[in-house]
Nucleic acid binder design. Structure first.
Lengths: 205, 205
DNA sequence: CCCCTATCCGGACTGTGGTCCGCTTACTGC
DNA sequence: GCAGTAAGCGGACCACAGTCCGGATAGGGG
């Protein structure tokens, strides 16, 4: 829809847009959001991510189930919200941290450093990451964070075959579901870390 | 439980064991199994795998829901049963077919041929394979077929870093969920095929 | 031909993720 | 303060995967 020269309307719209960028969260909403996150974190830590139902989270938070779903969309959204902070840290480190993770190092070094950092992230939050990626088929690839990592790697792979595909394939090595199985089979995190690095080195070699 | 020298009993047991190796399937059971497979194949083709419920399959087959689940375990089991034939074909080709897929060719060639054949398999049955792999978290890695492919690749990777890990990582490039997303993003099967091959060549190089 | 039982059937039932909508309440402008 | 209203609430409700068990039956033994 294109509107022409309705000056007053345009100005009002613009001001509204600038003034209320995030349309402001109501106090009760903010309180409930925190309650839910807190309850979810506690229950997940206590009983393991898989064995906690959304009803249980809602009840523990003292809110209705509808509130949890309205706020977080679905179970993977809740996991994502809990991961948000750590995820931002990693993204920040990649965007403007020290080399080799941040800008400044050669592309291959940066890619290896990123994958290494990601393995650590995975090791620290495996259950939550897995939940966020496997709640629904294809969830992993729709998450904003995945797109971010993918773009980052694709840029670092520039000049190597099909960078877009390669970035997907490299991210495949740090799939939470695969990592879970490897751990169950007795792999140490160090073995996984070496495997990822070794493969990435060959691919980017 | 150990039984000593109750000769009659032992002989009877042995005979029973030998005579009825597969304890024989009752006629009604066989009929219903075929009905269910037929109905599932039709509905899946007609409406797409995702949009067909197990109730619908049961109803279309004219049997109760319990029958479907008793026979196939769960939804991914049903998908697996439908894939069974094609899967066996590929396994047979790998075990005793012509080189480079079958025995006789150099390990690297065989691995590349296998991945190439698998991409074709994926292209032909993407929806079903995806269903069999994503019905439940970790499903992919528990399927007998995955173990088979994994062992095959691991053996072919012998002498290259961590063969067991590498085999998992290579299979990650032909993950049905990833392939689905790539297709949605506009990748042709040829592009995926080239990407898989290129990566595998670098890794096994 | 009939009986006996291991096998199988089927649909009512459960648990869980996710939706919906009438009611409530926090904020806004007066 | 107060009224109007949009944002938010919450629990009843739905869909679907998967379970269970009382009843039916195929098929072998007599």
């Amino acid at each position: 829809m294109v509107r022409l020269s309705s000056t007053l309307g345009d100005v009002t719209d613009e001001l509204q847009q600038i003034a209320s960028q995030p349309p402001r969260e109501r106090a009760d909403a903010a309180r409930n959001r925190l309650r839910v996150l807190e309850a979810a974190a506690r229950l997940f830590a206590e009983h393991g991510v898989e064995r906690v139902t959304m009803d249980a989270v809602a009840q523990a938070a003292g809110v209705g189930k509808g509130t949890v779903f309205r706020r977080f969309g679905d179970k993977s959204g809740l996991a994502l919200a809990l991961l948000d902070e750590r995820e931002r840290e990693l993204q920040q480190a990649v965007l403007s941290g020290e080399p080799p993770l941040g800008p400044g190092a050669p592309a291959k070094e940066r890619a290896l450093a990123f994958l290494d950092a990601y393995v650590s992230y995975l090791a620290d939050h495996l259950e939550l990451i897995r939940l966020s990626e496997t709640a629904t088929p294809g969830a992993r690839y729709r998450i904003g964070a995945y797109r971010f990592w993918h773009r980052h790697l694709a840029i670092l792979c520039a000049g190597t075959g099909d960078p877009d595909y390669l970035a997907h394939a490299l991210l495949g090595t740090v799939d939470a579901d695969l990592a879970t199985v490897l751990r169950e089979e007795g792999y140490t995190w160090e073995r996984i870390r070496r495997g990822v690095r070794d493969l990435a080195e060959r691919v980017l070699g």
